[in-house]
């Protein structure tokens, strides 16, 4: 079995407000059902993490900039690791990812051991 990184990207608009706990729970359900489904197939390697909206970029010569900003196109929102034999099999798992119903996409990359 190989491991693959599933990277979630989505456009974020600045006017989006912080969801209420109820909204949050309703948002989590499809994600939990999707990850539960992958885990039930024994193909989840790590339930990964969501990423905060603030970030900084460090560049050469001590230059630190804020961003990338959340209103950026296709901001990375989180990731999980799955187990699969091939890239196609990993892509198959990604087809049911809830981010696809929200205008986002999933990037799949094989993890190469160092």
């Amino acid at each position: 079995m190989k491991e693959f990184l599933l990277l979630f990207r989505r456009d974020v608009t600045p006017e989006e407000t912080q969801p209420s706990p109820e909204q949050m729970q309703a948002m989590m359900k499809p994600w939990q059902d999707w990850m539960g489904s992958i885990a039930a197939q024994n193909k989840l390697a790590s339930s990964g993490n969501r990423l905060g909206s603030e970030g900084k970029v460090v560049k050469p010569k001590n230059i630190v900039t804020n961003g990338p900003y959340v209103e950026m196109k296709e901001a990375i929102g989180g990731y999980i690791l799955v187990k699969a034999e091939t890239l196609d099999e990993a892509a198959e798992l990604a087809k049911n990812c809830p981010i696809l119903n929200d205008g986002g996409n999933v990037e799949i990359r094989m993890v190469v051991a160092m």
């Binding site: 359900k29 939990q32 990850m35």
Partner: peptide, 13 residues
């Protein structure tokens, strides 16, 4: 029960 199993499987298959 479904949500609890979703979580349980993520901890241990």
């Amino acid at each position: 029960i479904l949500q609890l199993y979703n979580q349980l499987l993520q901890i241990e298959y």
